[in-house]
Design a protein around this nucleic acid. Structure first.
Lengths: 158, 158
DNA sequence: CAAGATTGATCTGTCAATCTTC
DNA sequence: GAAGATTGACAGATCAATCTTG
């Protein structure tokens, strides 16, 4: 019941606020640029992107949900919308009927290819260009340490 | 029209993915912990927190929107909900009728005080405890550089 | 019955339109 | 008329309940 809370020091608060503020700000910037220029949300874009990296442009819903940081429910709704727009289609896994595969259509692939340059350019201008290669490396290490601590799977490629 | 896109290197992609993944993961973790244990969203919590730091527990809507990274519209809806729950009330600024002040109620303050220890503890356990003081400092500097680059206001205290 | 996935109800955010005060 | 703020309509996310297959 006691559990004395270890409050944050002034320096910690400062770092913490800057970090939360900037991450939220950057997400919003990317969201609205993608939305404006491609009519895709950040998650939608990454859903297409993850699929495009698979040799057969196919991935199981549950894995896709994990990689895009979305709940299965959220992904399911989202894929339904992407299906309506013909960017993705579903097919249940012939090997195991419990699994559903999401499959990138040609149209979806074209959409991604059209959207990518502007997005990547924004990421460079907004973020990467601020840092040296070593700093980018450093940031990646910090992020990976946190992912390990949390127990989140790291890699994209299985 | 050309604008050759400077695509990301393998290392850059790796850092970038880890960073986006971890930030989204952490936000979700904080969201759901706050929601579960206090019935507050992350923005709601920080809205109360920002108000509590003002001597008179009062702040203009537009400033509050800025500090919580919300649009004015979003904040307005949000404050309406917080008002219904009696955590905040509104009053138009006597000095300038265009301004609306959001004011933390006693009930709202108690809510915040009740929610804070668990939240702060989670922030430590999830994130801060992974890093040395120097690293936390370093992360703060990275974040502030980005905020400057973007042109976002930095400080909380005016 | 457990894992994978979907659905529907509800809540929250966004965008455009509007209102108010200076 | 412009800045600050609010509103309503719609799009999207969350949560709990449900369906389906192994």
């Amino acid at each position: 019941m006691p559990h004395k809370t270890r409050w944050l020091s002034t320096k910690e608060v400062r770092s913490w606020r800057a970090a939360t503020r900037v991450t939220r700000y950057l997400f919003q910037a990317m969201e609205s640029q993608l939305q404006r220029e491609a009519g895709l949300s950040f998650v939608e874009y990454h859903t297409l992107a993850m699929l495009s990296e698979q040799p057969d442009h196919t991935m199981r819903m549950s894995r896709l949900a994990d990689l895009t940081n979305a709940s299965l429910s959220r992904l399911s709704h989202l894929v339904t919308r992407l299906e309506r727009r013909r960017f993705v289609r579903r097919a249940s896994d012939p090997a195991n009927g419990r699994f559903t595969n999401a499959i990138l259509t040609d149209e979806g692939y074209e959409k991604l290819v059209a959207a990518a340059p502007a997005h990547v350019t924004q990421v460079r201008e907004l973020i990467l260009d601020e840092f040296t290669a070593e700093e980018i490396q450093q940031i990646g290490e910090f992020a990976e340490r946190l992912l390990n601590r949390i127990g989140a799977p790291l890699s994209t490629t299985e």
